[in-house]
């Protein structure tokens, strides 16, 4: 079974929920219109379509747009050697969707990382703690409205943070410059 057949079967099983597959650079993506149903879709993908391996879960911050969050599931089938991407949207007010740890156990740490970095909660997760930052760190550092240099915090006997000196930065590399002087990292203010 190829990626395309899997995506079509998924669409046939959930016609109102799962979009038709879209292709980009040889990879197929389907959109899930209701994040609340992600568990059912993933359960079907694993049980019937043999997507036995969850490669990754990632999240996107569409800052300024509504819904703010996009959660992306990268599925792979070792049985058929194919790959499929599921995308679903979550609003900022809700910031919550069901866990898929009951489908793939490996989702445990992926979901904890998303909770740590973006602050999206996964309902039903057995152990939703921060995974990289310490318990009690007050911010979600991968959100677009979090400054690159960080913010000062203080948690006595656990950890502290200070903003990093950026010296006018961030320093950005310009791709495609004709020599290394044009390409090298410099302070570049992005014009909007």
């Amino acid at each position: 079974m190829t990626s395309l057949e899997s995506a079509q079967q998924l669409h046939a099983r959930f016609p109102n929920l799962v979009s038709k597959p879209s292709e980009f650079r040889g990879e197929l993506t389907v959109a899930i219109s209701d994040a609340e149903q992600i568990h059912e879709v993933c359960g079907f993908a694993k049980a019937t379509l043999d997507f036995d391996y969850l490669v990754d879960i990632s999240s996107v911050d569409n800052y300024g747009d509504d819904p703010r969050w996009t959660v992306v599931y990268e599925l792979a089938s070792l049985t058929h050697g194919c790959h499929l991407r599921l995308k679903t949207s979550v609003s900022e007010e809700k910031s919550e969707l069901p866990t898929v740890t009951t489908v793939w156990k490996t989702a445990d740490w992926h979901e904890r990382e998303i909770y740590d970095m973006m602050g999206i909660r996964f309902r039903g997760h057995s152990d939703l703690r921060r995974i990289l930052m310490w318990d009690g760190y007050p911010y979600f550092p991968l959100r677009k409205d979090f400054p690159l240099a960080g913010k000062p915090t203080e948690l006595p006997d656990v950890a502290f943070t200070n903003p990093a000196p950026l010296e006018g930065g961030p320093f950005v590399t310009a791709a495609g410059g004709k020599d290394s002087i044009a390409r090298e990292p410099r302070v570049r203010t992005t014009e909007v």
Binding site: L132, M133, P141, F146, P147, L148, A149, G150, K151, T161, N162, P163, A164, P165, L166, G169, P170
Partner: peptide
């Protein structure tokens, strides 16, 4: 000095 990590997570 913190090196290349001018970041929220690294002690400078």
């Amino acid at each position: 000095t913190g090196g290349m990590y001018r970041s929220y997570s690294v002690l400078q």
